[in-house]
Nucleic acid binder design. Structure first.
Lengths: 329, 329
DNA sequence: CTGAAAGCGCTAACAA
DNA sequence: TTGTTAGCGCTTTCAG
């Protein structure tokens, strides 16, 4: 910076002003500074800037499982929206290699960077873990229903998603349906979806057979039970709380010599997977793009001093596919 | 920090030592410091630390298109490997909203953070753009063939991938094949794959019909031409340089009333998409996990002072699927 | 509109 | 093993 200042024949303070200053700078000086920094290849040191300014326009994203296409999409969309608003974004992902409280580690990594705001898109960090930082950093939780009175959240209306699917299944005339139901501790979202599906189906007078799917990460959990239920003539359709689960289920179906929807209808949820339309899943598409946009907008207002806290819920849209048909006669 | 120091009855330097110091600290003092910082909720300021130490163990990842599942997977795997080696990682993604040279912007964001090392996983940043920083920061390019004498790279052997697929297609007895060939400026990788496929097919004595696919992002580019070529009886198979392109092609195929592989065989490349096996694409699976592992290991040695530069190429494995069969008679 | 000077929170010799 | 003392590169009053 001193080099640039010297080359441009001004003080360091002026260089600073040219780059970020609120104070006006003479056109000529500005040009001189830009020219000099260009020539010298000057890249401002963000660390020093943040340290001195005690504030940062870098906002952090705590992202669970970038491997999951739904999170990948969220990342991409947030990035677009955030930079459209003139903010910067860096991302950290928790890693199991970081030990027991690995999500905590990732959170600290972000906090250590003294980000100016935080997006939290992970199921496991609990709201009260964030509490100590609320005074220092605006936080927006994305994708997970949250009702903390001091934390803004933008999430999906999972109940509505489930209802849409349940209505579609019931509407086809199915009277016995398997609902794969993951434990709450593993995926709050999937758990909730499954419960909502079950409730709605019952309202329709459908006989529901819940299938437990306790293990985290084992997407095929419950597959055999579903097949059994079908064999025994108890169900003509199976509802899964996530597309990836349907995907994992298909080989079992094929192995059992069954076809969908002729023998058994199946539905998923998410609608994000590229090619989902090709495979033809009946599913609900969650509005990731919209969530990203809202989250970015909200962050902006929060950074601008707003203190209004809301918990927004976005609606998904039913994606009719060929895996849902009427029950076999 | 001063607060902690005071509470623990030591100097700030000692607090610093307890947290990161190479110098030994008495057990008792260490405990006192930890106790105090726990009580006061002290989170070290990474910015200040980096500024003072002039070095950082945070390594940055410049990631193109997190929306693409292949990049998402790379992100996830890198994160695991990196933290297993005791390093931290932050990620930035270029955003088109950042204007013309948006990749440049993202690069600067990373440089501004004064990361201790950089992974570059994006097709567009040219090696010579990185040159000015090579002295300051070790750089590892991932996924893109690179031969810069000062930049380490870990990439996929795209020629070999293409050969495997071409051999499989030729082996089925196809004598006329369409190869969708994107322009080099858009995706160097896909361009290279297409050229290699073409060359290999020709070695097998196959008649190749290149189909230009100039537009970036329009995955369905070339679809109609392929259909035409088939209609005219020129080709019995179509090779695409990426799975996503195959995916985009399928609706056209269906619309034309054609089936695969009975009427037309198709192959892709990447093998990353969840459900790819279900769809049954014939493709090559690129070894993302292995690339991530190597990249992390290499980064570690580079940070430890190694200066050895190599350009590693990893082999993919053929994923036979049901979209490739013998030509119709 | 611009310069001087005082830090931001921390590390790294150098002494003790 | 610990404290003292300079900074790291930048921002921000406060005067001019």
């Amino acid at each position: 910076m001193s080099a640039v200042a010297e080359a441009a024949g001004v003080s360091r303070a002026t260089v600073s002003r040219v780059f970020h200053g609120s104070t006006p700078v003479a056109e000529s000086t500005r040009d001189a500074v830009f020219a000099a920094s260009e020539r010298l290849g000057y890249v401002p040191n963000v660390m020093a800037r943040v340290l001195a300014a005690r504030t940062s326009d870098i906002i952090g994203l705590l992202l669970r499982g970038p491997t999951n296409p739904a999170y990948g999409l969220l990342f991409g969309e947030l990035q677009e929206n955030v930079s459209r608003l003139g903010l910067q974004m860096v991302v950290v992902a928790p890693s199991r290699a970081e030990g027991a409280n690995f999500e905590r580690q990732a959170l600290n990594r972000l906090l250590g960077l003294r980000v100016g705001g935080m997006f939290v898109a992970t199921g496991v960090i609990r709201a009260d873990m964030l509490e100590p930082f609320l005074d220092k950093v605006p936080v927006v939780i994305i994708g997970r229903p949250e009702s903390h009175p001091r934390i803004y959240s933008v999430s999906y209306d999972e109940d509505d998603n489930a209802y849409q699917l349940a209505d579609a299944v019931a509407g086809q005339g199915h009277r016995g349906v398997a609902v794969v139901t993951p434990a709450g501790g593993n995926s709050a979202t999937e758990h909730r979806r499954a419960l909502a599906m079950t409730a709605r189906l019952r309202e329709h007078g459908v006989r529901v057979h819940p299938v437990a799917a306790p293990t985290f990460g084992a997407q095929e959990e419950g597959a055999r039970e579903v097949i059994e239920l079908h064999r025994a003539g108890h169900v003509t359709a199976a509802m899964f709380p996530a597309d990836l689960r349907v995907l994992a289920f298909m080989p079992y179906l094929r192995e059992a010599g069954l076809r969908t929807p002729e023998d058994l209808s199946v539905t998923g949820c998410d609608g994000i997977l590229p090619g989902i339309d090709m495979i033809g899943f009946t599913t609900v598409r969650i509005p990731v793009e919209q969530a990203a946009q809202r989250a970015a907008e909200v962050m902006k207002t929060l950074l601008d001093g707003s203190t209004e806290i809301r918990h927004e819920r976005l609606h998904g849209t039913l994606l009719p596919g060929r895996t849902l048909g009427p029950p076999p006669r």
